[in-house]
Amino acid sequence: MTEVSPQIEGTPLIAPSSTDHPLYDAVVEACRTVYDPEIPVNIYDLGLVYTVDINPANEVKVIMTLTAPGCPVAGEMPGWVADAVGPLDGVSNVEVELTWEPAWGMDMMSDEARLELGFM
């Protein structure tokens, strides 16, 4: 029998983003310049960016996933995100973390992405 670790009730699977931070919109726009090479939609609208956490020292932590664990650019895409966010005026540091929980699904895409890919 496999033991399942308990989840604290009410704890979200995806950590909340710092949407009220002044740099948030610029970081999101920077993430929108990064594309999965196999899909003609940016990673933000694909729903691959789960959390944009920005602390008071303007250190940015992006928690993201990929469409599949075997994604051929798995080793490169976090660097692409860091390269897009790092040069933003005011950003002091960027950390990009890959996660597989929760698993990405097509329901995480924005309406724009669904339209672009012909799912609407």
Score class of each variant (00 low, 15 high):
R32L: 10
M109A: 04
I14N: 00
F119A: 02
A74C: 02
P56I: 04
A74P: 00
T99N: 00
A82G: 12
L48T: 06
E76G: 01
P72Q: 07
C31D: 12
G118V: 07
N55I: 07
H21Y: 10
E29R: 13
V49E: 08
E38T: 01
E76A: 03
G70W: 08
V28L: 11
E116W: 03
P72E: 02
V28H: 15
L46K: 01
M109V: 09
V94A: 06
E9G: 02
A26Q: 08
V62A: 06
V34D: 03
L66A: 12
P78N: 07
E112D: 13
H21I: 14
P102M: 09
A74R: 00
L98C: 11
L48A: 10
E101G: 00
M108V: 01
E76F: 11
E59C: 08
G75F: 05
I8W: 00
P102A: 04
V4C: 12
P56F: 01
A82R: 14
V73M: 04
D107M: 06
V81F: 09
E3P: 09
G118W: 02
V60A: 02
I39C: 09
Y50S: 11
N93E: 06
G90M: 06
W100Y: 14
V60W: 06
S5T: 15
M120G: 13
G79I: 08
A103T: 02
L98K: 04
E59N: 14
I14W: 04
H21G: 10
Y35Q: 15
V85P: 09
M77A: 13
M108D: 06
A15K: 13
S17K: 14
S92G: 03
N55A: 03
V91R: 11
P37T: 05
T51L: 05
V52M: 04
L66N: 04
D25P: 12
T65N: 00
G10W: 01
P72T: 11
I63E: 08
D20N: 13
T99H: 00
V41K: 03
P37A: 04
Y35P: 09
P56H: 06
N42E: 12
D20G: 10
L98T: 00
G86W: 05
T67N: 10
D107P: 14
A15I: 04
L88G: 14
P72L: 07
I8V: 14
E116H: 03
I54C: 05
P6I: 14
E59R: 15
I54Y: 05
